[in-house]
């Protein structure tokens, strides 16, 4: 009995001691944030750990861009995955906690407008037409395709899109309606893109939008709608079209934010360098669009020079070139 009591006491003491001294000290890179950026970071983490033969451990969570940056600005993670630039409020949080960060674009995501393959009248779409469909004023009023363009059929228009917490929603509304988060509310919203895929593929009058990877994997069920760009050319989304800049305004850069303090740790530094060297190839493998080699080099250069802050002023921008972003003088 006495022995048992002693054992329990020892166990409790040991737990207490470990808790007090902090967690097990092994090289660990902690990443959290956007589900859009997740597939690329996961691929990089997988290959990096294999290359290091398990000497460095990497964890990747999905808390969304907002949730990831919140943890990042509390100093809980080394890197935040973000599908949009850091916002004013988050910048203030980071500043208050004394967290400096390096903003690194790592790939493009092409928002893809999709329709049902049985839809015969829709050959291309302009941003203005998308706006007519999606702006808040369209709620309850624009319910048929021919209300948007008289040349189209009088079929019911059914809209599918990501929910309001998603960075994709923010970017699409900003690019199409002109103001982030400004959208009609009467559409089928889901944070799970597979639900949107199912919806549009079963609804002849359906139209939806989500990241290119989801379209690519469901090419047999859906058709991408060519979007008319500034030059008046209708462009079907593809890796090439995003890289040469012709698919706009619905392509956007996605980012990682690296804490400047963590960047001093050799394992984090090595991971970010690996990311910028191999990220392009891996991005392509998971159906995202890589930056140009020159952009990755430039980003690597910014990282080694520790250029902290954001190239955006705390808000998103539509149609900005990554090469120009990297040249800007970032502000904190």
């Amino acid at each position: 009995m006495n022995v048992r009591v002693k054992m329990i006491a020892a166990l409790v003491a040991a737990v207490g001691a470990t808790a007090a001294t902090g967690a097990y000290a092994q090289a660990l890179v902690k990443i959290d944030g956007s589900s859009t950026v997740f597939p690329i970071t996961e691929a990089v983490a997988e290959d990096f750990q294999k290359a290091k033969k398990g000497a460095v451990r990497v964890t990747v969570g999905i808390s969304g861009t907002g949730g990831g940056l919140k943890k990042f600005c509390r100093g809980e993670t080394d890197i935040a995955n973000a599908s949009r630039p850091i916002l004013d409020k988050e910048m203030a949080d980071c500043r208050a906690a004394g967290i400096k960060y390096i903003e690194l674009p790592i790939a493009f995501d092409a928002l893809t407008v999709v329709m049902n393959p049985k839809n015969t009248f829709l050959k291309q779409i302009t941003v203005a037409e998308l706006k007519t469909m999606w702006e808040p004023g369209a709620q309850g009023k624009v319910t048929k395709w021919n209300q948007v363009n008289p040349a189209w059929s009088d079929q019911n228009l059914k809209l599918y899109g990501p929910g309001a917490d998603s960075g994709t929603f923010d970017y699409f509304t900003e690019a199409v309606v002109g103001k982030a988060k400004s959208s009609r509310g009467d559409f089928t919203a889901s944070e799970d893109d597979n639900v949107l895929v199912q919806g549009v593929s079963r609804d002849v009058g359906g139209l939806g939008y989500f990241g290119f990877a989801y379209f690519f994997e469901n090419k047999d069920k859906l058709k991408a709608v060519p979007v008319v760009n500034k030059k008046g050319v209708a462009v079907t989304p593809s890796i090439e079209a995003v890289m040469d800049g012709s698919y706009e305004p619905l392509s956007r850069p996605i980012f990682i934010y690296v804490s400047a303090k963590s960047a001093d740790k050799p394992e984090v530094k090595e991971f970010v360098e690996y990311y910028l060297k191999h990220g392009g190839k891996l991005a392509k493998e998971v159906k995202y669009v890589p930056l140009t080699d020159a952009d990755y080099k430039h980003a690597l250069d910014n990282f080694s020079k520790k250029k902290t802050g954001t190239a955006f002023g705390g808000h998103s921008e539509v149609g900005v070139k990554v090469a120009d972003l990297l040249k800007r003088d970032p502000k904190e």
């Binding site: 040991a14 097990y24 964890t59 990747v60």
Partner: peptide
Amino acid sequence: LTFIAFLPPLPFTGVPPAGLLDWLF
């Protein structure tokens, strides 16, 4: 976490060796 490609440390293994209860953390 969503992506995690390693296991909690077994007691007294690894470099530096893990303590008896490090897996808990």
